[in-house]
């Protein structure tokens, strides 16, 4: 029997993982919803955020300046990419978009390695967020992870506000439903697209810096996250921010709980070493099975409009 604190802690971990996935997925789904663009290089923006943060922290010693730099660098890279390349791709098919953004991954990854070298960079959480907090029920949980959950939920709330209440959000919604119309009523659609792309990039960069602080800042760090983010938005329904949030938390919790429960389940009838290996093998496939299952019943995802 598993202790209740372990299960509770894993639920929190799953939530934190899900919130991080949401930050990645939100940008992807927004860019797709508004511009109809699929961006494989979204993971590179995550990496750029982490590297910018690490570089600024090592120069200034301030995590908060690093965090600001990660937002700025990723947004700038996003805006630059949008203005030089993506803009030419909106009218093209998804195939060209996939290829150009795949090529961008090569350019960003190898370029980053060129500038920063092949070794991982150092980046740690700020001292003020180090340590653990005692939660009710006798559970000590890292403060930083609680802050990630809170920050992620705050960003989600902010995004919903932005899309439903502000002028920019109104234009985004208008752009989603009718692209010609919005240009006709005089909205500067180029600026709008650049802004949306930069916003999505900044969210990815933010996630990169926040997660890079507790993982490893290295070239290629964005790719596994990118693929998970795809799973998230397929489950949630492409273009839907609400879907991204629900999908992200579903994937985060399923993955984390699967890694805990499956080996334990197999442990009831297999040798410990075999159970650990088999359980871990299946756990790594679990979210894809979840995706297949959801697609089977809802081809458009949970909150998707059309398949």
């Amino acid at each position: 029997m598993m202790p209740a604190t372990l299960v509770a802690e894993q639920v929190l971990n799953g939530l934190q993982f899900g919130v991080m996935l949401f930050l990645m997925s939100a940008g992807l789904t927004l860019v797709f919803g508004v511009m109809g663009l699929i961006n494989l290089a979204h993971g590179s923006l995550y990496m750029i955020g982490a590297f910018a943060c690490a570089a600024v922290v090592s120069l200034t010693g301030s995590f908060w300046l690093g965090l600001a730099a990660s937002l700025a660098a990723a947004a700038a890279a996003g805006a630059l990419v949008e203005m030089t390349l993506m803009r030419r791709l909106y009218q093209r098919g998804h195939l060209d978009q996939v290829l150009v953004t795949f090529a961008l991954i090569l350019v960003f990854s190898e370029g980053t390695r060129w500038i920063f070298g092949a070794f991982p960079l150092y980046l740690d959480i700020p001292p003020s967020l180090a340590g653990t907090v005692a939660l009710p029920g006798g559970l000590d949980y890292p403060l930083y992870r609680l802050v990630i959950i809170a920050a992620g939920l705050a960003v989600a709330a902010g995004l919903f506000q932005l899309v439903s209440r502000t002028r920019l959000g109104m234009r985004i919604r208008a752009g989603e439903s009718d692209r010609e119309m919005i240009a006709a009523i005089g909205v500067n659609i180029r600026a709008l697209y650049t802004a949306v792309f930069a916003l999505g990039a900044a969210l990815a960069g933010f996630a990169g810096a926040v997660i890079g602080s507790i993982t490893s800042v290295e070239v290629g760090m964005g790719e596994p996250v990118l693929i998970l983010a795809f799973v998230v938005i397929v489950i949630g329904g492409i273009g839907s921010i609400k879907g991204a949030l629900v999908g992200a938390i579903l994937v985060g919790v399923t993955d984390t709980m699967g890694r805990l429960l499956l080996p334990a389940l197999f442990g009831t009838f297999l040798e410990p070493a075999d159970a650990a290996a088999t359980g871990a093998s299946l756990a790594s496939m679990l979210i894809y099975l979840l995706m297949a299952l959801i697609l089977f019943f809802r081809p458009g995802g949970l909150f998707g409009k059309v398949a």
Partner: peptide
């Protein structure tokens, strides 16, 4: 193939990854 467009791209990628 029940889906198309971007869904199709992401789903084929995800299954290969699995």
């Amino acid at each position: 193939l029940r889906t198309s467009g971007v869904y199709f791209i992401m789903i084929t990628l995800a299954f290969a990854q699995m």
